[in-house]
């Protein structure tokens, strides 16, 4: 039983990390209706920048962190200004294609700046089990996982408050609902989109640091980030709580499937099991658990 518990907790905690990446997608999708394929590349770029600043330029964490944040905000603003603004009013698929191109550009750019060799990254918390939990209950729970979950939780609460309670947050949701109407009441779209991309850059930095610390900063980060896809399908593309719950379900179920189902089918199902769940979910509830239902007048 304690083994099952261990697997479940490890799954839930890694699910929180998926949720963190999914959040970046949700933010941009919510405010501009664009599925930003480049979010994974942004996560990679953020982690590479932070690790590069620390290791190549030997900067302390408290200097490297704000610098990396600034780089992400500038990157977000630049994407909005150079790529998305000229493409406004184009069909969704055009914007999606643009973000695919962007993904490869950002990956190339970060390798140009910081090289292509994977680096380690430390955020000061080790991936070790809590000793007292192991001693008393014989359950191993990683300190790093708990740390990551707490950070993610704080971020989610902040974002939810920002969206629900502030004037800018309300404007963001308004823009998501109806661009034209938002313009007509004087909400400047560019300003709103710039904010969203900057915030998405910030979320990518947090996700990049946590994932980088766990798996190392390498090209594979962009693929890890794509795990956010099943999370989004499960939770709904427009919902911040959906990203969290979706992340938890995906994280827990893939770990449990790997441990209990894997041996029967030869193992190695952790990598794709999430997509099976997502597919099954699409059939039953295409808008996701918390996605916004389309409101149509008939």
């Amino acid at each position: 039983m304690s083994f099952f518990f261990e697997v479940l907790v490890a799954g839930l905690l890694s699910g929180v990390m998926y949720a963190l990446v999914a959040l970046g997608f949700v933010l941009i999708f919510k405010a501009s209706g664009v599925f930003n394929f480049a979010q994974g590349a942004m996560v990679f770029f953020a982690a590479a920048t932070y690790a590069g600043l620390q290791q190549e330029h030997h900067l302390a964490a408290w200097i490297a962190l704000p610098l990396a944040l600034a780089a992400m905000v500038v990157l977000g603003l630049a994407i909005e200004r150079v790529v998305l603004r000229p493409l406004v009013n184009q069909p969704q698929i055009t914007l999606f294609m643009a973000t695919i191109g962007l993904a490869f550009f950002i990956e190339g750019m970060s390798q140009m700046f910081w090289g292509s060799t994977p680096r380690g990254l430390s955020v000061g918390v080790e991936d070790q089990p809590f000793q007292w939990l192991s001693d008393r209950y014989n359950v191993n729970v990683s300190q790093f996982d708990v740390f990551a979950a707490v950070i993610s939780g704080i971020l989610v609460v902040l974002l939810a408050l920002f969206f629900q309670r502030t004037r800018i947050g309300r404007a963001l949701r308004a823009v998501a609902d109806d661009h034209q109407a938002a313009l007509s009441v004087g909400i400047p779209l560019q300003y709103i989109w710039a904010i969203v991309w900057a915030v998405a850059g910030f979320v990518a930095l947090v996700a990049g640091l946590l994932w980088g610390a766990r798996n190392g900063v390498g090209f594979s980060l962009t693929f890890t980030a794509l795990k956010a896809l099943p999370v989004l399908i499960l939770g709904g593309f427009e919902s911040i709580p959906g990203a969290i719950v979706g992340g938890l379900i995906i994280g827990a179920s893939e770990k449990i499937a790997e441990v209990y189902l894997g041996p029967h089918v030869g193992g190695g199902i952790e990598g794709w099991f999430a997509y099976v769940i997502a597919l099954a979910f699409l059939l039953v509830r295409p808008e996701g658990l918390f996605g916004e239902r389309h409101i149509d007048r008939v």
């Binding site: 004037r167 308004a174 609902d177 109806d178 109407a181």
Partner: peptide, 18 residues
Amino acid sequence: HCFAHLTVEENLLTGAFT
């Protein structure tokens, strides 16, 4: 062109954005 997913009051408040 109301903001369909916002409440009526939130709709009104967006009008005060400027």
